[in-house]
Nucleic acid binder design. Structure first.
Length: 281
DNA sequence: ATCCAGGATAGCG
DNA sequence: CGCTATCATGGA
């Protein structure tokens, strides 16, 4: 597995946490690293201290994908000094919010409602294996995510075999809109976060939460804050302790303001920490 | 067995 | 406008 790997510096970075924190769902452990598809290329990644070793030719793309240029120490300094977020930061040390390709990020989160992280992963891998392009290299094999043009042509019954349930119709309908050009995902880059969010919410199956996931994980909008059941749980149990039935809009407003201009990062650390340590009472 | 999961949406008052 | 029931599947 160590043929033709290129080293790139990666300070303040934890590969495992980054790939297994519920922002991206298809990377698979292989040897001491991970294998997956970066757009249409098979890429192998492994970490050695403050260095990432990447399959040659993909170093530059990988560094961008992994957001190794995000000024993590500076970002952390902008967070409020309270024990809850500071504990989550420690627990999540080295977790970076990566830059995913727009379509596969959108498509993957379209399959996420009312699903656990491992289910989203299973669905992503099933769709890739069945409809994506097979990529091989040095005995490794992965599958890319099918483009919107291809997804739009999949019969609903076939898509349902990937165990999407009621989410399949939304994925199909959105794929048709994107494939037709009616929605230009690349053009959203030129919009304000607010306008891009509104545009994403026009797509079938995309509400405010999924739109914020896409903005945060694929558009580098680090102030976008997805409020899912876990974030709502943290806010209710900690920041609104003692209050009953806090309206969701109040939770969202609080999260978007309290954590500062990198609230998306703060949100990801809270999500990661609580999801892996929470015990029901 | 019952509850829950990185929610969105139509339909109600 | 805000609130509720419902959607499909599998793990805890």
């Amino acid at each position: 597995m160590d043929h033709n790997l290129q080293s790139i510096p990666a300070p303040h970075f934890d590969l495992e946490k980054t790939l297994n924190s519920g922002q991206v769902f298809h990377w698979t452990r292989l040897g001491r690293g991970f294998v997956g598809a970066l757009a249409e290329n098979l890429v192998y990644l492994e970490q050695a201290g403050e260095t990432i070793r990447v399959t040659a030719w993909h170093a530059k793309a990988a560094a961008h994908y992994l957001a190794l240029d995000h000024p993590l120490p500076e970002i952390l300094k902008t967070f409020p000094v309270d024990p809850v977020i500071q504990t989550a930061i420690q627990f999540s040390e080295g977790l970076r919010i990566i830059r995913q390709p727009q379509w596969e990020c959108l498509a993957t989160f379209l399959t996420s409602p009312l699903k656990q992280v491992q289910h989203i992963r299973a669905i992503s891998l099933a769709i890739r294996k069945r409809f994506g392009r097979r990529l091989q290299r040095d005995g490794m094999e992965v599958f890319s995510y099918p483009r919107p043009e291809q997804v739009s042509g999949i019969p609903l019954a076939e898509l349902l075999e990937c165990k999407l349930g009621f989410r399949a119709a939304n994925l199909l309908a959105t794929a048709k809109i994107v494939a037709s050009g009616e929605m230009d995902l690349e053009a959203l880059r030129n919009l304000s976060t607010e306008d891009a969010r509104a545009a994403l919410c026009e797509l079938p199956g995309v509400g405010e939460k999924i739109a914020n996931c896409v903005l945060l994980f694929a558009y580098d909008r680090l102030d976008a804050v997805p409020v899912d059941v876990w974030i709502a749980r943290v806010l209710n149990e900690v920041y609104f302790a003692g209050r009953l039935k806090v309206p969701l809009r109040e939770l969202k407003s609080f999260a978007a303001h309290y954590f500062g201009s990198y609230a998306g990062y703060a949100q990801q650390y809270l999500f990661h920490h609580w999801r892996l340590t929470y015990r029901r009472r």
